[in-house]
């Protein structure tokens, strides 16, 4: 962390600074909507927040540039409150697995409205167990199936949440499944 080149350390504050400048015209869709409004109007607060973000990012940028040799910038020194600092230099941190895990998680969100809650959850849990080095077939099948069933009973039957049923034929299939399970 402390040995990142200057450019990489400058990236985050620079991006935030640029973002806060570039976002300014997009506060409201049509600037004409603001015309004719007296007083501070709906654009005032977001603009103030953009200023706050921009100024802080600029200060961070300056701090990083001014102290290139003092062992990392602000971020490397700051310990996130309450979380134990990440393992030094990621020695026992499996970065590949983290990225695969993130991709799985995002995929779950994408598949949820397409496949419906039960099937998407079943697939996600199974994939996650596999990622977590569980290889026993009995576990890989039983845990997702029983877990998904429990979740369906708790959230769809008891809590009566309108969880996604899926698109088109998948939606009908989910309804059918719920009827089979006695949920509907």
């Amino acid at each position: 962390m402390a040995h990142h080149p200057l450019l990489l350390r400058l990236l985050a504050p620079a991006l935030l600074l640029a973002g806060s400048v570039l976002a300014a015209p997009y506060i409201v869709q049509d600037p004409e909507m603001l015309a004719g409004l007296s007083g501070t109007g709906p654009g005032f607060w977001p603009k103030a927040m953009l200023w706050g973000t921009g100024v802080c990012a600029a200060l961070w940028l300056v701090a990083e540039v001014l102290r290139p040799r003092r062992g990392g910038g602000l971020a490397a020194e700051a310990v996130p409150e309450g979380t134990v600092p990440p393992a030094p230099d990621g020695s026992d941190y499996d970065m590949t697995r983290a990225i695969v895990g993130l991709v799985f998680t995002l995929l779950y969100g994408v598949l949820l409205p397409i496949l419906g809650f039960p099937l998407a959850t079943l697939l996600f849990v199974a994939a996650w167990l596999f990622l977590g080095r569980i290889r026993r077939l009995s576990l890989l099948v039983l845990v997702p199936v029983l877990g998904t069933l429990t979740l369906c009973y708790v959230f769809v039957l008891l809590a009566r949440m309108p969880l996604e049923r899926g698109a088109g034929a998948m939606g009908e299939a989910t309804v059918r499944l719920y009827q089979l399970l006695g949920i509907y």
Binding site: L115, L119, L123, A169, M170, A173, R176
Partner: peptide, 16 residues
């Protein structure tokens, strides 16, 4: 898993 899921739902969907 995907194949099994699709097969199962195709069957169920047809029977709706």
């Amino acid at each position: 898993f995907v194949a099994a899921g699709i097969a199962a739902t195709a069957f169920a969907g047809g029977a709706l």
